[in-house]
Design a protein around this nucleic acid. Structure first.
Lengths: 212, 212
DNA sequence: ATTTTTATTGACTCACCAATCAATAAAAAC
DNA sequence: GTTTTTATTGATTGGTGAGTCAATAAAAAT
């Protein structure tokens, strides 16, 4: 019963199934057949659309990465909107910094399957050049996002950005290992550390949280 | 040409070879035959001594973990020795905290093969109960080591310890991903963050009352 | 000197899985 | 209505690798 124009839907289904399967198995050692079955199709079709297992995993990684990015953009837009176009000059970068941090710990990013899959992708990135490229892309983007705000908040922005990025990754990593779901304390922990790090050369920290 | 009493040597050789092989392949997908060959023996012998691939990987993980522990003990002993038995009261916990942090970034711990292998072990710990146990052991030990000093240095030691542990793991993770060898800046970055964190809840420079 | 124990090998088995492919069928194009 | 394109299946192939085992040999024990 072939319907036409199935390709995008099937690709999306396979990507979602791959993340779930990897997240549930807590390992990259999942078969194409398992993923395809979960996505409601035959293994042959999975190969037809992705050409191979590796490319499917890359696509899954890219999908999670896109989720991170979307989360950050959404968080920033929200801060922009709620503070208004003529808000005080000092609330801007600080609130945006907190929003960037919070974005990495939002519930849909902190989903058990996704954290577990992401941890597996760290392993993949070690041995697969394309996965390594994506990982670097993620790291550069996070660093650049942090830098954009930190330049206005402290006088050693590069060092501070590196520290914060490592802290974000570390907190996320530990959550992935623990396998516990979303943890509201995670974002707060990183945010207050961020405030401490910039305190040396910045204004008083009035509000630490941006999400109400 | 069987010599007697080979078991310990062969086990050690296999563990070392496993770490090197995993570290070089940057993946857990190494064959027992490869490891055995690198260790200078047949695949059969590897199975004979370890019973299976998984147990060999566990042993390798345990070996790296032991290296961490040794590094910490050594660092602490060194601090103790150089400050002397009747040194000033304020140099103690702070110096020991720094030593614990530095221990995690010493050259032999920061070895390329070991960082890479350790990253792979994160993946293993997700799906293998015994590896998960070892990972928890590592985390508990690190946390407990940090706590021991932080209790004397700040009044939210648990939170601070969690943050520092995540930061240490994050910095180590990023080094593993980057694949660059030992980085002298790594320890320093974590140490100065630690100083900031305990300054946030500053205590009197000398002995402090137990807060719980 | 014989027996037992320990060390060691590598060929073999068995299972698994990625990738291929020929076959089938619905839709679209002509 | 015929042809072409797209979707889909699942059996098959080919390669791989973990784990087993029987055979061999040196050392130790008797």
């Amino acid at each position: 019963m072939p319907k036409v124009g199935m390709e995008p839907a099937r690709r999306a289904a396979l990507v979602a199934a791959a993340i779930d399967e990897i997240g549930e198995a807590r390992s990259l050692d999942v078969t194409v057949a398992q993923i395809a079955r979960r996505a409601g199709m035959s293994s042959g079709l999975a190969h037809h659309y992705f050409g191979g297992k590796e490319q499917m995993l890359i696509a899954a990684m890219r999908h999670i990465l896109a989720g991170f990015g979307q989360s950050v953009r959404q968080g920033l837009a929200q801060v922009e909107a709620q503070s208004g176009p003529q808000s005080g000059p000092q609330s801007g970068p600080r609130a945006r910094l907190c929003a960037i941090i919070a974005a990495n710990f939002e519930d849909h990013v902190f989903d058990r399957h996704k954290t577990s899959a992401w941890l597996s992708f760290y392993a993949l990135a070690q041995s697969t050049p394309e996965a390594a490229r994506l990982m670097r892309l993620y790291q550069r983007r996070l660093h650049s996002n942090l830098m954009h705000e930190l330049r206005q908040l402290c006088d050693a922005p590069t060092d501070t950005a590196r520290t914060l990025a490592a802290l974000i990754d570390g907190v996320y990593l530990r959550a992935a290992v623990a396998g516990t779901g979303p943890d509201p304390a995670a974002a707060h922990r990183v945010q207050s550390t961020a405030m401490l790090l910039i305190k040396g050369s910045a204004v008083t920290p009035d509000r630490v949280e941006t999400n109400d």
